[in-house]
Amino acid sequence: MAHMERPISPHLQVYRWQIQMVTSILHRATGVALSFGTLLVAAALLALAAGEADFATLRAFCANPFGQLLLLGWSWALFYHLCNGIRHLLQDIGMGFRIEQFVRSSWLSVIGSVVLTVLVWGYVLMNGVAG
């Protein structure tokens, strides 16, 4: 009995992809990514406290293409986790549980995060970065 082949619960690959699934997975993925991003915040503060040379090193790191890519990804992850986090907080107080509301708020999180990212980087590009 114990070794009988039992049906296992369906896993990711058997589901048709839908937006609610994407937002749920992305929330966890961006959360883990942002946890590593905390190191960047800590590094910036420590560099600022340490002195001008360390601060210049940090600036140079953020200004090179790899650093810029990292910052772009970090900012999108932050905005996505922020938008979807607000969505989850609203759901926690009992709002938006009808299926169509659920789908709509999922799209709002994704679109909102992209809009915020574009706005911030648009601002950065228009104002230029100090060397």
Binding site: L48, F55, L82, G85, H88, L89, V120, V124, V129, A130
Partner: peptide, 24 residues
Amino acid sequence: TAAALVVLGLWFVCLVLSLLHADY
């Protein structure tokens, strides 16, 4: 902490953006 970070996170982004041209 999530509710706190909604406010503090937005403040942090604004602070960083305000320091784009700042020297040390």
